[in-house]
């Protein structure tokens, strides 16, 4: 697989190191000459010094044969244009932009460019690890039409000790993964649930509340962030 990466800094360095270790062919485009020299010394990758949003530079970097293009510069406008040139001008099918401003993730998607926000990802990870809350919202996918939620079962949970097939889940709700002692299990009907288990739950906004109730028992509707989304 040939991957073209535009950007710099430690993120780029470690991503490239990882990709090269996996045997991918990596081409880096960076604006700064000094950094290019450093990168060329440290990594066995082709390094091109120039503006990644310039079609001629992309061509020099061999974009025509690339399987994927990744734009992770610190400027969102550059990342957007790099990805649009890659897909519209050069026909690369897999392009991915980093959105430095988390608000831009949605905007880029609307403009036809797949995007991710490290701020969002790291933020939700920190929330997940540091939070003592029993219910954590991991993310909403499909433009907010699907919720992914993590629940930690406590001893009072009405489902603790029950076998999955005996649990009465509302329609359109699914336990995707069960994590016990750091071991993920994709559960089936015969698996049981224990206090301390972490469940990753897939729900639709309509039945999110009733699905949660099955696991926590309480008729809890405390601000879990989905109220707003359900209206829309």
């Amino acid at each position: 697989m040939k991957v073209l990466i535009v950007g710099g800094g430690k993120t780029l360095y470690f991503i490239c190191r990882n990709f090269i270790a996996k045997g991918y062919e990596v081409v880096i485009i960076n604006r700064k000459k000094d950094e290019c020299i450093q990168l060329a010394r440290q990594l066995s990758a082709m390094v091109i010094c120039g503006d990644g949003s310039d079609a001629a530079i992309l061509k020099d970097a061999g974009i025509i044969g690339a399987d994927a293009v990744l734009a992770i510069t610190p400027n969102d406008q550059d990342n957007l244009v790099i990805c649009q040139l890659a897909s519209l001008k050069f026909g690369v099918t897999k392009v991915l932009a980093m959105a430095n401003d988390p608000d831009n993730t949605e905007i880029f998607e609307k403009l036809g460019v797949s995007a991710f926000s490290t701020t969002q990802i790291v933020g939700s990870l920190i929330e997940q690890r540091a939070s003592l809350e029993q219910v954590l919202n991991l993310m909403s996918v499909g433009e907010g039409r699907v919720n992914v939620t993590e629940i930690i079962l406590d001893v009072d949970s009405p489902v603790a000790g029950k076998v999955l097939k005996d649990i009465d889940l509302p329609e359109n709700a699914l336990i995707a993964v069960l994590i016990r002692d750091n071991q993920p299990i994709v559960p089936r009907g015969a698996n049981n649930l224990l206090a301390g288990d972490r469940l990753v739950l897939i729900t639709l906004p309509e039945n999110h509340g009733s699905a949660l109730k099955v696991f926590t028992g309480e008729s809890q509707q405390r601000g879990n962030g989905f109220e707003g989304k359900r209206v829309s």
Binding site: S53, N75, D76, Q77, D78, L80, V81, Q84
Partner: peptide, 8 residues
């Protein structure tokens, strides 16, 4: 003065 800003 930045093309990419204008385009975005």
């Amino acid at each position: 003065h930045e093309d990419n800003v204008n385009l975005m």
